[in-house]
């Protein structure tokens, strides 16, 4: 018996040709929950960060999703957007998740961006290291811009002159993504793109 990961309703199973052939994608959400997320596909371009592709709007359903995923630590929810993330990231050659501070990671018991990628079966490189435990969401724009570097390169990390794609859950002011892009470009990356699940 399969239930919707979010509302726990039992999923209706209709016999389909795809199902018969065994090529049907595994469903994680019911139709109602699935329709509550608003696909946006916003693509913004810039200098330091060459482009940012944000998949969804930050609506009420998405806010609740992240509350359950990050705050209630429901790792199982990493599966919800696995298919969507995979289709955007499968062609990328070097995927770099935004890292968590080790203390923060132990507190949450998992690194939420890495889990999203793991569920999406997207291979990734751990090239960056978070320097502080400060939380972006608690800062004003001015405070964010005045901050010391958030990331450093991991020891022994080698950056090649290729295109890197950084992945984060949310794109708000862009401080996090820009700082990560800066570190990668400084070290010799040719191009840095970003993919985020939501645009706030």
């Amino acid at each position: 018996m399969t239930r919707c990961l979010l509302c726990e309703q039992q999923l209706e199973r209709r016999p389909t040709w795809q199902g018969l052939l065994g090529i049907q994608k595994k469903q994680h959400l019911c139709e109602i929950c699935s329709n509550s997320f608003q696909r946006a596909d916003i693509i913004e371009e810039g200098n330091l960060l060459d482009s940012v592709h944000s998949l969804y709007e930050y609506n009420e359903a998405m806010r609740e999703f992240f509350h359950q995923y990050k705050f209630l630590q429901d790792v199982a929810l990493a599966d919800v957007f696995a298919g969507e993330l995979r289709s955007v990231l499968k062609e990328k050659i070097a995927v770099v998740p935004i890292p968590m501070h080790p203390d923060k990671r132990i507190e949450r018991t998992f690194a939420h961006v890495e889990e999203l990628l793991r569920s999406a079966v997207v291979p990734f490189l751990l090239l960056l290291e978070k320097t502080s435990t400060e939380v972006m969401g608690e800062k004003t724009r001015e405070e964010r811009l005045a901050m010391k570097p958030l990331f450093i390169l991991q020891k022994h990390a080698v950056i090649e002159p290729i295109t890197y794609t950084i992945v984060d859950d949310i794109y708000t002011t862009g401080t996090t993504l820009n700082q990560a892009a800066f570190v990668l470009k400084e070290a010799g990356a040719k191009r840095v793109e970003a993919v985020t699940l939501i645009r706030a």
Partner: peptide, 25 residues
């Protein structure tokens, strides 16, 4: 749900049934 837990550095299982009352793993 079973996952690799960063806190106990091993395989950890949690209950999704009473998750909303604070996760039990």
């Amino acid at each position: 749900t079973t996952f690799h837990c960063a806190k106990c550095e091993g395989t950890c299982t949690y209950c999704r049934k009473c998750l909303k009352m604070g996760r039990i793993s």
